[in-house]
C-alpha cells in the first residue's frame, strides 16, 4: 500500500517536520488574527461609520480573493513592484493574518451586536461600573458566542496552509511529494501511503480542536 516507505530513512520525521512548519505559520497567524480581529471587530459599529465602511470593504476583498492569489501577490508581486524581498514564511504569515483578521473581525462584530444594550443597562443599574460590566457581563458572553466559530476559522487556517508550498515552503504536503518523487522506482505505491499519512496528520491536528469547540458549545448550552 506504500506505507513501508515511511519507515525508510527519516521519512516520517521529515513529514512531521513539514507539519511543524505549517503549524508554526498557522499558529502565529491565528494569534495575530485574534488580536487584530478583536480590534477591528470592536470598531465595526455605527459609532465609527467611516472605519466601518473601510473594514467592510476589506472583509469583502478578503472573502472574494482566493488565498492562493493573495499568497502570490504577497510573495512574487511585492518583490518586483515594491522592491522588497520578503521570505516565503513572512509572506504566508502576512497573508494568513490578513485573511484571519478580517474573518475574526466579522465574528467579533457579530458577537458584539448580538448583545442587547439592555444587558449593559441592567448591569449598570445594579451598580456595577462600566469596567466591571465589561469584565463580568459582556466579555464572557462574547467569548461564549465566538469560540465555536473562531475554532472553525482556526481549523480552516490550518488546512489552508497546504497552499504555502506553492510559494516554496517545505510543509507537510511538499515533503510528502518529495518523498514520493525520490522513491518512485522502488515504491511505486508510495503516493497512496504518503498522502494518506498527510491526511491522518491533518486530521490528528484539527479533530481535537473541533471536538473542543463541540464540547464548549455543549457545556455552555446546558
Amino acid at each position: 500500500m506504500g506505507f513501508e516507505v515511511l519507515l525508510k530513512g527519516n521519512n516520517m520525521i521529515r513529514l512531521l517536520g513539514g507539519l511543524a512548519a505549517a503549524l508554526k505559520i498557522s499558529l502565529i497567524s491565528v494569534c495575530i488574527s485574534l488580536i487584530m480581529g478583536t480590534v477591528f471587530g470592536s470598531l465595526m459599529n455605527d459609532r465609527h461609520p467611516l472605519i466601518k465602511k473601510i473594514l467592510r470593504a476589506y472583509l469583502e476583498i478578503v472573502r472574494i480573493m482566493p488565498q492562493l492569489v493573495l499568497l502570490f501577490i504577497a510573495y512574487f508581486g511585492t518583490t518586483k513592484a515594491l522592491g522588497v524581498n520578503i521570505s516565503a514564511e513572512a509572506a504566508s504569515i502576512i497573508v494568513f493574518s490578513f485573511w484571519g483578521s478580517a474573518e475574526m473581525a466579522d465574528l467579533v462584530r457579530g458577537a458584539l451586536s448580538g448583545i442587547s444594550p439592555a444587558q449593559y443597562e441592567s448591569s449598570l443599574a445594579l451598580g456595577l461600573t462600566y469596567h466591571q460590566t465589561l469584565v463580568y457581563i459582556i466579555i464572557p458572553q462574547i467569548i461564549r458566542r465566538m469560540l465555536p466559530l473562531s475554532i472553525n476559522l482556526i481549523t480552516r487556517m490550518i488546512k489552508t496552509t497546504s497552499l504555502i508550498m506553492m510559494i516554496g515552503i517545505v510543509e507537510v504536503l511538499k515533503v510528502g511529494q518529495q518523498i514520493i518523487e525520490a522513491n518512485r522506482k522502488n515504491y511505486p505505491n508510495a503516493a497512496f501511503g504518503i498522502y494518506f499519512t498527510v491526511f491522518v496528520l491533518y486530521f490528528a491536528v484539527c479533530w481535537p480542536i473541533s471536538r473542543l469547540s463541540r464540547y464548549l458549545e455543549k457545556k455552555w448550552e446546558a
Binding site: S116, Q119, S122, A125, G127, T129, Q141
Partner: peptide
C-alpha cells in the same frame, strides 16, 4: 455614579438576566 445606582434598583420589561 455607580455608587448612586446601587441604591436605585431597576427591573426591566425584558428581564435582562445574565444568560451566561
Amino acid at each position: 455614579l455607580s455608587k448612586v445606582r446601587e441604591k436605585i434598583g431597576m427591573v426591566f420589561q425584558s428581564y435582562e438576566l445574565f444568560p451566561h
